[in-house]
Design a binder for these strands. Sequence first.
RNA 1: GCAGGCGUAGCUCAGUUGGUUAGAGCGCCGGAUUGUGGAUCCGGAGGUCGUUGGUUCGAACCCAUCCGCCUGUACCA
Length: 479
Amino acid sequence: MSKKQKPNRPKARLPRGFVDREAGDIRAVEAMCAKIKQVYELYGFDPVETPLFEYTDALGKFLPDSDRPNEGVFSLTDDDDQWLSLRYDLTAPLARHVAQNINDIHMPYRTYRAGYVFRNEKPGPGRFRQFMQFDADTVGAPNVTADAEMCMMMADTMEALGINRGDYVVRVNNRKVLDGVMEAIGVEDVGQKLAVLRAIDKLDKFGPEGVALLLGEGRKDESGDFTKGAGLNAEQTNTVLDYVASGKIEGNEGTEELALIEALVRGAGYEDMQIRIDPSVVRGLEYYTGPVYECELLFDVTNEKGETVQFGSVAGGGRYDGLVERFTGQTVPATGFSIGVSRLMTALKNFGKLDTQSVPAPVVVCVMDRDADSLGRYQRMVQQLRSAGIRAELYQGNPKQFGKQLQYADRRGCAVAVIQGGDERAAGQVQLKDLIAGREAAKDIADRADWVEQRPAQVSVPEADLVAEVEKILAQYEG
RNA sequence: GCAGGCGUAGCUCAGUUGGUUAGAGCGCCGGAUUGUGGAUCCGGAGGUCGUUGGUUCGAACCCAUCCGCCUGUACCA
């Protein structure tokens, strides 16, 4: 067949912004989620799960129109022509769930859940169109005691994940305080308000000078592209910068709430290095109604390319008193936060706080003789090992070339290969090959004949002692 | 979205002013070796040179286009 006439096969490829996950990452995420869950359960939260799809209008903000039905979210029409969307966070579906079951749910409703969410937008390094969030919310709790509790739970979660005190900080602000700032500078236009809030949010990225530019005319980035500013005058800009520097704005409700949150967390024993008031925290712009909080990692991590990366915020949330009201018309105050699981996992992995190799590779029982009796014996050995709680498998590849079996075991990182040919069987023995020790011993062997002859790190043991002898070898490599 | 950079084998990259059949290292597969991983030696597979169109006698190379990746920025529920 000529090359030009190759059948037109589909290309094996992933949609942009999506990834496959492999064993190490999956186990690491599961371990992380187990720790997070433990904290939430301890705080008295219960799980709830909602589907990946919702009716688009239930998700709220992004209603598809005929021109751009998938702007921001992935949407499609059901066979009854109703718009469905993949959820883009876990909060809107929770609000829908609560509104739908409001007569059966006992408030305050304390709940957590983890799952994938989807965003139809430009992906970047560490930023995907499908990623995992882990949320906790208290619904039907009007007081800032609930917000303070969320902050404490965030801090506890970070420490449960092995992040040391001082390597993270929960920063708290209040949307009402920011509203007070708007009032003080006389900004009423919604668009301009948002521009000012976004500028404040950039404090840790660009510093006060950068924020000043964004509050005023605008700022030019490293590529020479220009970002238009909020258009404040010098006096307004200074008022905002003063606020950001001092955190003070003449007394309003928000300031009092923040003071109360601070008193609550200090009373519970949390230090300033764990939870702290920070005037530059902004979070979701048209969403939160009161306290807002986020958790930032403070350590530098080195990525695969050897570059230093600041991870910044890995969790965030706040009070959203209006979300359930969208459905029911009655105000149901709620507060909660979301952990970016995938992102946090990447940070922990690069920081060396994540063990991605916690599961040892299995013991491989090799196939020497291929008659039914022998295969049955090999399978029995595998079962004996499994019964003793040892991961074990029969070699399932083509057994004709014995060397391939050891190569397979070696490449998988197995510690032990079990070998029994006719000679061993006649003597009631099995050979146990310690592949890890063998690799060491092989360093001094240059000649293949010697290599084969010596059979490094291989012992013959009575077949009856198989499990005990394997355990002995494995014990050396534990931990 | 905007600005800039970059697309050659699975990976990292060479590839002359535009000139025959596009190369290397590593990796992969096979053999030396049907009862032993590694090392060594020998052999092999693998490319629409990101796409499509244009300029040219001739394009991996020049131009346009779209797609993808990277950096910055914007948006971020």
